[in-house]
Design a protein around this nucleic acid. Structure first.
Lengths: 241, 241
DNA sequence: AAGGTAACATACAGGCATGTATGTATGTGG
DNA sequence: CCACATACATACATGCCTGTATGTTACCTT
């Protein structure tokens, strides 16, 4: 939902479409441009190193606009976190409910996540999580741990269901396995971002390993990724660097 | 070599052993205590959020001592990076040369790395790498990319050798596979730190997956980890939190 | 034991970024 | 068309942290 707003919110959108525009439009455009610039800045420099003057500048504004749209630096970061979380949930996490088989859901999430990470904004969550992992006193840290906690529970449930149905072999407790699954996803997504098509391939390999599944046969892998690739191609177009 | 110095360099070491101590001893102790405090601080707060006053305070000194032992904040961080890298190489990476079989070397490295990560200082590399990944203009960023690059080459060579000998199945290029292998190690080490024994178990699972190996049989895993555990137990004692 | 030097502690100066207060232009409603 | 609110820009105040300069204590040499 936010994606479309963000996608068209660029530098030229400010003075481009016409001299007459409603206040709500101006506000939405400005907010979107600033959010996107903040997301890029956060993924590049992290929270502490992020200078709000540069964020506003890259969005085509000054700090005045930023402090008019967001209460402070913290609120800006929280808004970015919420936006990325919603986008991820809509583009990737949703598959957890769609697929009927838990194993297929977990593998589909893994593949889509790898594609999702081809956008540079995917780094935001990792960067902030690393920066605030040991600092849960900070509101941003709390928001992140809560967000990750929700996803972890979903994946743990999928793992437990898969084990109950026999499609996933036994192993460490579901929570720890889910944490390992998500950590692997995150790390590989970042590390191999843009190195298509190996990002998807290696992500699936690692995922299968964590879940205790044997390596996929060449034909099965090819078919699965091929069908996923086409369905997933549009994800990368939401935010083109 | 540095490890022993660091291990005995605590707050009480300053005034404990006796009023008479050589200048070199004082310098080494102070440097060690400051390095350890800096490593803890970096892993908790990152580089930008690290206040040198707090580092010095936690080590039992003031900023004056710190600036006497290290030229500036940057040099301090670089010293921490070098120290962690040397420690890792001695305790974990060395296995790459010891083991004769490439596969066994890679799996041994993975297991030992999981144990290595039970120390909180292991987070330092990840934290700094995330903070400086997109900023190679910074000397700390360069030092990190160089350090990671060296390890990546070693692992890529091991993977290539294993594939040549047939013990590792074919897959993505050795460099990308090595990157995925190391990223997985790093992420799981951090995420599962302290969750023994699942950290080792899940790390080995993910590693086998990345390399394209089938899941280890229960007996093989137990035996391997059992022998490793005993040989590796001492590693965690180098720096007890 | 006394001068000298190294190991620190304390005090001072400067920069950079956040947050706020004020000013200006553009849309909005009667 | 005019009062008003909203969207922004500019200017100011504040705080924290780095880096340096100076002072004090402990050790080393002869």
């Amino acid at each position: 939902m936010w994606g479309c707003v963000m996608a068209e919110a660029g530098k030229e959108a400010k003075a481009g479409s016409g001299p007459r525009q409603s206040q709500a439009d101006r506000r939405a455009r400005s907010r979107g441009a600033l959010l996107e610039a903040a997301a890029r800045g956060l993924s590049k420099y992290g929270y502490a190193n992020l200078a709000l003057a540069q964020v506003a500048s890259e969005a085509g504004y000054t700090r005045g606009a930023l402090y008019h749209l967001f209460a402070n630096k913290e609120e800006l970061a929280l808004a970015v976190v919420r936006w990325v979380e919603e986008t991820w949930q809509a583009e990737v996490g949703q598959l957890g409910a769609d697929e009927t088989e838990p194993v297929e859901a977990l593998l589909a999430i893994a593949r889509r996540h790898a594609v999702f990470c081809r956008q540079e904004v995917a780094r935001v969550m990792l960067v902030l999580r690393v920066e605030f992992a040991e600092r849960e006193d900070h509101p941003v840290g709390r928001a992140l741990t809560e967000a990750v906690g929700r996803v972890t529970v979903e994946c743990a449930d999928l793992i437990a269901a898969g084990r109950a149905s026999g499609s996933i072999p036994a192993g460490p407790p579901p929570t720890e396995t889910a944490q390992a699954y998500l950590a692997t996803l995150e790390a590989l997504g970042i590390e191999l971002a843009g190195r298509a098509p190996f990002d998807v391939e290696l992500t699936e390999r690692a995922t299968r390993g964590v879940l205790g599944l044997p390596p996929a046969t060449a034909t099965a892998t090819g078919a699965a990724t091929a069908t996923e690739e086409s369905a997933v191609a549009a994800v990368g177009d939401l935010l083109q660097p």
